[in-house]
Design a binder for these strands. Structure first.
Lengths: 115, 115
DNA sequence: TGACGATATAGATACTTGTCAATACATTGT
DNA sequence: ACAATGTATTGACAAGTATCTATATCGTCA
């Protein structure tokens, strides 16, 4: 696979897993969630949950804070904001037109990967 | 990998690739884009572009219409709407609290996978 | 019909990823 | 210090995926 330097791709990719999306959804329902609760929810082993939490941490989605024996995870607002920004960017914008055949000179600038 | 029956996961996963996100972004800049333009943009071969377009098609992200020799792709509004809906669902909602230790009886209903 | 250009499919391969069992690490309480 | 519990790491493996070359399919035009 190509190296994904694009932070948006990383954000999407880390959310694009059943277990991880479930975790993100749980974290959307409570301010913070103990890691032990994820183990119970998704039908995967504890190491697997831990692995997914690390992926989410590395992508900036969540942060964890240790209190006694337990680690409480919470959503990082920056990630949520970036995700929503991305969602806002995908879809119709102003100035739409048809991008035609290869010799079409009317190409929009954005369609040409800037050198 | 687990079978992803969750349509949201499918939507995310199909967008979570550098080439495909680039395609989605191009399609956000013009009402429709000829397939031949994607080949030029992303640094991958034509069959690879075709493969990615198929993935996006299968996920419901895009639809293609043939006109003469060329196939014009466009974003499907339903997919855009679903994506934005998903983005709106990830993040703080009302009624937040801390989900505590395993024996914590105060769990929010949403945190227990409904049997 | 046959040649040509655009797009899709098939098959092969290297790489990535999700998963688990086993183990290590960290914190609390006895 | 030691046992118990929650979490992270390691190592291994099966499965998925992105990519290519080669080839097939589809539509147009002479």
């Amino acid at each position: 696979m190509k190296r994904q330097t694009d932070p948006d791709v990383l954000l999407l990719q880390s959310a694009a897993d059943p277990t991880r999306l479930a975790i993100l959804r749980q974290l959307s329902a409570a301010a913070e969630v103990c890691a032990c609760n994820f183990t119970g929810c998704c039908e995967v082993s504890q190491p697997t949950v831990s692995h997914h939490l690390k992926v989410l941490r590395d992508a900036g989605w969540v942060s964890g804070e240790r209190r006694a024996n337990w680690i409480y995870y919470r959503l990082r607002p920056e990630a949520v904001a970036r995700f929503r920004q991305l969602a806002a960017e995908i879809g119709p914008i102003d100035g739409w037109s048809t991008l035609g055949q290869p010799d079409d000179k009317r190409r929009l600038a954005v369609l040409q990967p800037q050198a």
